[in-house]
Design a protein around this nucleic acid. Sequence first.
DNA 1: AACGGTAATATGTAGGTACATATTTTGTCA
DNA 2: TGACAAAATATGTACCTACATATTACCGTT
Lengths: 233, 233
Amino acid sequence: MTTPPRLSWRDVRDRIHDQILTGQYGPGDRLPRDADIAEDLNCARSTVQRAMQDLSDSGLVERRRKGGTRVRPDPVTRATLDIPITRREVEQRGGRYGYHLIRRSEADAPRAVLSAFELDTPRPMVRVEALHLSDSRPYILEDRWICPRTSPEIRDLDFTEQSANEWLVHNKPYTRLDLRFYAISAGEEIAGLLETPVGAALMVIERTTWIDGAPITTVKAITRPGYQIQTGS
Amino acid sequence: MTTPPRLSWRDVRDRIHDQILTGQYGPGDRLPRDADIAEDLNCARSTVQRAMQDLSDSGLVERRRKGGTRVRPDPVTRATLDIPITRREVEQRGGRYGYHLIRRSEADAPRAVLSAFELDTPRPMVRVEALHLSDSRPYILEDRWICPRTSPEIRDLDFTEQSANEWLVHNKPYTRLDLRFYAISAGEEIAGLLETPVGAALMVIERTTWIDGAPITTVKAITRPGYQIQTGS
DNA sequence: AACGGTAATATGTAGGTACATATTTTGTCA
DNA sequence: TGACAAAATATGTACCTACATATTACCGTT
């Protein structure tokens, strides 16, 4: 008697995945219940559940209690991005990291910042403008607003030695993150700070974080020309 | 006797998460074994396992068999991106979608394309240049190379009606995806096609896919001015 | 038909056991 | 001391059971 090798949840996942992509189940179609698939494949329902969870996470299917599992009608390519601390990023690329605080100020947050936080009422915030350097050359220019109501500690920090980026990542967990990328053309001020020609195309990374609904920080990181964001590796 | 409400894996996760961020466990520190945590919290090991998996997925800790669980020394902010089919994207934004094939050609893949695929030896590929429109105005310009050795079917497709984007997403599953974003300045040709001033800052999305190591397609999607990529909704 | 409450049902989660697997640690021998 | 094999160990996976929860589906009433 040869014992058939047990099915792993990856096997189950791949099997379903194949069935979807060979057209056996099309967009919007409902798949059998986990229990039935489990019986079909002769494995435990928990194994099917694990497989389905993974397919759901990767955006291929949608699952709803009692509603069952259906193939997502609009396929998406889903990818995971890792954005390291800027210091780590520079060092990992073999550069010598440098940091320079440009200005630290307090003011009522402008409309754009409030809108990033999805706030209606104006409130005072701390603004930190700083430059990250790689081998003494400008790497990323960051324009950050921090909400002191959520992070009172920043009143005692001047961010001349340690970047707000680093301090926040190490000390301020968040429950919600909003990321966006877009391109801008370097204006005069930015071009001057990044030592780049006026009109250069620059990637901007905007990041906003909240903890349980309370705004922590929003930052506009303007990268030097040629900067790339990439997945994996 | 009040029965204490059972701990969910989310509770466990949040508890560990807090402990890490209050400094109870610092970067590089090793956490107790799952079994011990389970005993401490009076829950099943499988619950702790689930919690730890999630923390591992979100980049906060690293787990290794026998090595145990340790706090990641270099914190990263990890985010998930959904990139929909361009047609869906346009329609979801309330625009009327249009598609226009510019050119379909065959040639040996240039060095840049081979490098994207991590290939050494040149091989012939199909190139598809096309324009996606929103309300009859240019939205995304895509310059795509497809490997016919991996997808022989494309020999029979002319991509005049359906975009290669759509066909591939629906018919070509991939096992590996490489994504990168960067900014470019519109040259004359691109500016003409996107109906944008020369020198405008544009976001580029490069996407390369493989199936089990075999190259499928690589595409450079040049977006119109003001285009943004963002997480979440 | 329209409404509303109830039952039916598929997925989600927790508990528990057993074994698999990947590493590290230890121990032995040259 | 070094190399290699064996033991120890923490996480990973599979199975099963029981119950929780969110919806959908159904049915009776108006």
